[in-house]
Design a protein around this nucleic acid. Structure first.
Length: 223
DNA sequence: TGGACGATCCCCT
DNA sequence: GGGGATCGTCCAT
C-alpha cells in the first residue's frame, strides 16, 4: 500500500516538474515566474503542496546577498547549478529555502518567503507543532496550537515557517529540484496585475532594490 | 580563539 | 512595537 502510494506520487511528479531551463534564466525573471507555481514536498510518504505567493531575488553585486563576499562553505550551493535548493540556518533556530538561479558560478538565488497551503495541511500543522527532532525543528521553539488551524496564515506565511511546515532543514541543502523529494510544478497562471513589488524584508543593505514579489491580496503573504 | 550578528518568529506590552 | 531565544558562520585578533 505504502509502495503503491509512493509509486503513484513518483509517476505524477514526472510529467509536470519545471525543467532545468526554467531556473537558468535571469534571477528577477525566475522570481516573478515562481509566483503561482506549486512547491511539492514528499515527506514520510505524504505529499505536501503549497502555492508560492511571495519571493525575493538575491543577485550578484548585491550587498544583501549571502554570495556578496564570495563563495564559502556555507553558501557554496548558491554558486552551483541552477535548480537546486540552497537552505541556510539563521538566528540560531530557523531555516530558509532558496532556489538557485542563473549560470553556474554566479551565486544568485530566489528566497521563497511564503506559500499558500494546497495539499497535506494536516501534515504541515504537525510539522509546525513538533518541538524537537526532525528537519527544520529546533528544541525550545513553541507555537501555540490555536495559531495553526488549517486555514491560518501563520502556518506558512514566512520563510522559516514554510521550511518548518515542509520539513526542510540542513539535510535538504543542495537538493536537486528535478529530484523526487522536493520539486516545483506548474500551478496557477497569474496576470501581471496580480503581482506586487517592493523592497526586500529584514535586510540592512540593498533596500533600494525592489526585488520582493508577491501575489496581491493573498492572505498568506507575510506582513 | 572569541565575539558579533543574522534574508526570523513568537509572546508580551 | 519591542525584546528574547539560540547557534553556525565569518572575520578580526
Amino acid at each position: 500500500m505504502f509502495f503503491v502510494a509512493t509509486l503513484l506520487l513518483y509517476l505524477g511528479s514526472l510529467v509536470q516538474k519545471l525543467p532545468r531551463s526554467f531556473y537558468l534564466r535571469p534571477t528577477l525573471q525566475v522570481a516573478k515566474k515562481l509566483l503561482g507555481k506549486h512547491l511539492v514536498r514528499i515527506h514520510h510518504g505524504k505529499k505536501l503542496v503549497g502555492k508560492i505567493v511571495e519571493v525575493e531575488a538575491y543577485g550578484r553585486d548585491d550587498p544583501a546577498s549571502h554570495s556578496f563576499r564570495g563563495k564559502t562553505k556555507r553558501n557554496e550551493v548558491m554558486f552551483g547549478r541552477a535548480g537546486h535548493l540552497y537552505v541556510y540556518f539563521t538566528y540560531g533556530m530557523h531555516f530558509c529555502a532558496n532556489v538557485v538561479t542563473g549560470p553556474e558560478g554566479k551565486g544568485e538565488a530566489v528566497l521563497i518567503r511564503a506559500v499558500e497551503p494546497i495539499e497535506g495541511v494536516e501534515a504541515m500543522i504537525k510539522n509546525r507543532l513538533q518541538v524537537s527532532g526532525g528537519a527544520g525543528v529546533k528544541r525550545g521553539l513553541r507555537i501555540s496550537p490555536r495559531l495553526l488551524s488549517p486555514l491560518s496564515p501563520a502556518l506558512t506565511n514566512g520563510p522559516a515557517k514554510l521550511c518548518q511546515a515542509f520539513a526542510i532543514g540542513k539535510e535538504e541543502n543542495g537538493a536537486d529540484l528535478l529530484g523526487d523529494e522536493i520539486f516545483i510544478v506548474a500551478g496557477d497562471k497569474l496576470p501581471a496585475s496580480m503581482i506586487g513589488r517592493s523592497s526586500r524584508i529584514g535586510i540592512r543593505n540593498g533596500v533600494d532594490k525592489q526585488w520582493r514579489f508577491f501575489v496581491r491580496g493573498n492572505k498568506w503573504v507575510s506582513r
